[in-house]
Design a protein around this nucleic acid. Structure first.
Lengths: 364, 364
DNA sequence: CCTTGACACTCTCCAGAGGCGATTGCTAGC
DNA sequence: GCTAGCAATCGCCTCTGGAGAGTGTCAAGG
């Protein structure tokens, strides 16, 4: 209908109308008609004029009418345009920021998962949506202590303490028996030589030593170090994410169909799809927004994910965000996700930096 | 209407009719009318006769009519009578039992939580209901190894290995500084003297030694041993239970109200109420059934919990079961819960018994 | 050329009416 | 004590019409 290139950017007036329409719809949840808009304080146009503009916006695909005589509703494209260029972000209230900061730093004690979990609840309660935080990838992991315990058969229990006080353990199946003495020597060797060192260094060093005398022990040691890499604690929710406040999603009419809720919850349970979706924001910096169909997953058709990666030492170690209906209060949610990502990064950093310092000072 | 004492036990014929009615209702989910019942193979009565009997059953409170011209539906009291005296249990199919056994024993390796989690999924998939398994209480916990690591401030990281290969860790805040040497000596002392001994013994012994020379270390040691008691791993889902297949509950019409589902899920999330309810079955032996209102929690009004404690060495260490609508296939579900409880107990036992044996042979 | 008021049209939502089907309670008869 | 028949009751479904809301369009006015 309209020329394609100029049309992509509607006129100033049309944009204002679109913004007011989206804001109104987000607030009320009802299709917005021309009369409602014309009553809006900042607009001084007759309904008829607005109707013309709305017809244009509909042609451009920004809004749609559920049926002939209902008002208009933003489409995914409309939301996209809104969040990209129209939305007026509302910075978080300072008290909220401080409270959030406390909640996160309160538990920094070595346990990254506790931080993730706290962040998830916080996101959920701040936004009244579902909060999601991926378990942080191990980053800059320094070896604190290692211990081997012989089990029956050829199994060896490896206990690994990394960073400040993060304990990981795993049972390794070995190819041959190890005597108590061997295990003790191996542990002593690693502890004496590598305590306080980065795990990557340790691995490199061990690989370099492979031509040495101890190659048969080396296998055990390398395997042990590798434990810290895939952060999947055995009993835990397989290296995934922490989700909070899912039930809040049931409050939204647009998701109220039992069938939809069911599929959504099943998707949450299976984790895979959500994870791959979250992974997409790892690539980019800052807050990413996936609106409805954009996600590519039909289950999330009427949902939006607002996500942001969080970093430690400028390295992305995880993603966090919220999941909610497309009709969410973007102007509040986006800053919340943004700030939370920063604070989680800071909290993780604090955990890593604080506390016990190894024989040699941290890195160069 | 009817005399109270004899009335409590309806006639043989009435009981048969009640049984068939409940079975039919459980199968179809629709109120059952007299005509439907009269068509039932095993019954050879006219609808009118059956109506008379049904009127009696209604007077007794076993069944009720949702409205004048619908059939009858079992009441909570009716279900209670049904499961107590009428139901014909259907033993689990042998292949299912074997599969279940495999699923549970597959992962016995020291991790009780993995077993709980596997049992929960198994329960859910076998019954198409929500499965729930409490994390087993520590039982007959034997000390395998202990390790202290100094942290910054006066914090000490305690790593405790119990049983075969269960690793627990916690950070303790101490009243004074401990030197590396002190900590090493304390660990050596405990390891030399108590490896392979029951934690209760260890505690008793330590308490007895309190008048000895090392009382300042004793505090640390006692605190460390205490860690194993409250099994609440820090980041974990606070010493609670593993729930699986909640989403399956959304398939039942009687729970389909979004509001109900929401409350139910919130209750699951908060855990407390469910836990206290489950705790009730710890007292009794065998399968316990809480039908609807009986639970005392309004949220579970239309739900039934079928639960059974599971034991290790004849000691109850946890409870497992399923949560579903009152209208569930009791004749299948009860045996499944029963068998699962036994198998979980067996799996836990296998984990404790197998493997590494301490210097001295286990108990007396 | 843009804006505006007016008008006809369309569509949803809601309430009320009526028919259908299922089931019951009651009573009379076997 | 059982059964057949009958009237009555009630929920469910569909149909209908009116009210309300919003749209598109057109011609007049700035």
């Amino acid at each position: 209908m309209a020329t394609d290139l100029t049309a992509d950017l509607p006129s100033e007036r049309a944009r204002r109308i679109l913004r007011i329409l989206v804001e109104h719809y987000i607030r009320e949840g009802q299709p917005v008609g021309s009369r409602t808009l014309s009553r809006s304080a900042s607009l001084d146009l007759s309904p008829a004029t607005i109707r013309n503009v709305m017809a244009d916006l509909e042609d451009l695909g920004f809004i749609a009418a559920p049926h002939t005589s209902a008002g208009r509703v933003p489409t995914a494209k409309g939301y996209r345009f809104f969040v990209d260029t129209l939305v007026r972000l509302q910075p978080m209230a300072q008290p909220d920021v401080l409270r959030l900061q406390n909640q996160l730093e309160d538990r920094f004690r070595g346990d990254a998962k506790a931080i993730a979990s706290a962040a998830s609840s916080a996101l959920s309660s701040l936004t009244s949506l579902a909060g999601v935080v991926t378990i942080p990838r191990p980053h800059h992991t320094t070896l604190r202590h290692i211990e081997f315990l012989p089990l029956s058969g050829r199994r060896v229990l490896v206990i690994l303490v990394v960073n400040d006080a993060e304990v990981q353990n795993r049972i390794l199946d070995m190819e041959r028996d190890y005597s108590d003495d061997e295990l003790r020597r191996a542990a002593n060797f690693l502890n004496d030589r590598f305590t306080g060192r980065n795990l990557d260094e340790v691995r490199t060093q061990l690989l370099a030593d492979l031509d040495g005398t101890r190659e048969f022990m080396n296998r055990l040691m390398l395997d042990s170090i590798a434990i810290a890499d895939h952060n999947q604690q055995p009993g835990l929710e397989g290296s995934g994410y922490v989700l909070s406040g899912e039930t809040k999603l049931m409050n939204f009419q647009e998701l109220s169909g039992v069938e939809k809720i069911k599929q959504l919850f099943q998707a949450f349970g299976e984790q895979r799809e959500i994870l791959t979706l979250l992974d997409r924001s790892v690539a980019a910096q800052g807050v990413q927004i996936f609106i409805g169909e954009e996600s590519g997953y039909r289950i999330l058709d009427e949902c939006t994910i607002v996500a942001a990666p969080y970093t430690v030492d400028d390295q992305i170690v995880g993603v966090l965000g919220v999941i909610g209906p497309t009709r969410m209060a973007y102007e509040r949610v986006i800053p919340i996700v943004d700030v939370t990502a920063r604070l989680v990064g800071a909290a993780l950093n604090a955990g890593a930096a604080s506390g016990w310092s190894p024989g040699l000072n941290s890195d160069s």
